[in-house]
Design a protein around this nucleic acid. Structure first.
Lengths: 199, 199
DNA sequence: ATCGAATTGCACACCGGTGTGCAATGCACA
DNA sequence: TGTGCATTGCACACCGGTGTGCAATTCGAT
């Protein structure tokens, strides 16, 4: 049996992502384990939430790091790094809903702290994109990255809420939409050229 | 004393918007009233939440209706109706955070039901805009309106989180951003012309 | 000054979730 | 077969929020 602790953490990310008010019992049974067992690995509910957040954050940081490498390679490639990031992130996006969902509520403070480095990196990436002229300046970099972030989850939510039926090619529409969103205000020809260079 | 019931409802919108887990006691004291009194007007917490949601929805519907009138006036004026809507909505947007925040959680089903007509109207408005060629077709109308909606709150959240200090002209950036977002993919000259016609 | 409605202050029962203690049970490995 | 560790199955105490009952009070209107 793969480390029980890991399985609990995995399942907790999923369960709490769907319902932030889920209790230890819900997590436990979803992990195929008894409530008491969970307390064997985590001292308290808050402890579990914290651990889970740390895991999610470190996973997402890893993905971001890979995409940052793309950015470092060429110059003015911030848009490609973004597209790359979205693409890598997408299969996992539902998993990270928990970060969005738990940010409000009792743990908001701690979670925001854990999340800060990611948001910072993202904002910097956008900033570089703006400086290089591939991203629009209609919004300050930090807000712009927030908006992009929220758009990712808005699309993912829609994708999720219509379940198996009527599912659309969410990634197919998400990636171009987000990059377009970032490129708002950039003169058309340049935007188009940049968009086509990527293929 | 203005109708106590109304004051409770108002304050509940605010309090629950900030923290969806707030209890009856929090609402009561924020309303300058004792817990017992709240139960005099609402049979239960769920009753309060329901009533509060209905109020918020009907308020927002009213705003939307005014802007729809703008749309009906001219043809192909969906973009103006949107801009108008955002502008009217903005001063109240923090008030309606409660709808976003409570959509998850135990009352999700009911709230979504109450919210459906609004989302439908919005989606139709976007659809009309797309048909008239002023809005982009990069996303299906319903998703696009969701994304726009989420962007509104993303910007508003940012505005809120930095409090009084460092406050930027949030409406100033929000309105053009949202409309630009909707117009993604529309040929530049046309978009620009439409953007300038509004002034 | 008095009537009446709204509000208060406290009592209580109830519920569901948390966190702990401990003995019993499984199960893998030697 | 025995040893050790993880897991289980209860038991329990505790807490905080809900919802109710009822008598005491405030306070405006007449």
């Amino acid at each position: 049996m793969v480390e029980t602790r890991d399985r609990i953490l995995d399942v907790a990310i999923e369960v709490l992502g769907k319902n932030p008010d889920a209790g230890m019992a819900d997590v436990a049974s979803a992990a195929g384990v008894v409530r008491r067992t969970v307390y064997g690995y985590f001292p308290s509910r808050s402890g579990l939430v914290l651990a889970l957040t740390e895991r999610a954050v470190s996973e997402i940081t890893a993905v971001l790091a890979e995409s940052a490498a793309v950015d470092d390679a060429g110059d003015a490639a911030a848009d490609e790094a973004w597209a790359d990031f979205i693409e890598r992130l997408w299969p996992l996006v539902h998993r990270y809903r928990v970060l969005v969902v738990l940010r409000r509520g009792e743990f908001g403070k701690d979670i925001h702290a854990l999340l800060a480095p990611i948001e910072k990196t993202l904002a910097e990436l956008v900033q570089r994109g703006q400086d290089a002229g591939v991203f629009g300046r209609h919004l300050p970099a930090d807000i712009l990255s927030q908006v992009a972030w929220s758009a990712v989850f808005a699309i993912a939510d829609d994708d999720l809420s219509r379940g198996a039926r009527g599912r659309r090619d969410a990634l197919g529409v998400a990636a171009p939409t987000i990059t377009s969103l970032l490129m708002l205000g950039v003169p058309e020809p340049r935007a188009r050229a940049l968009a086509e260079r990527r293929s």
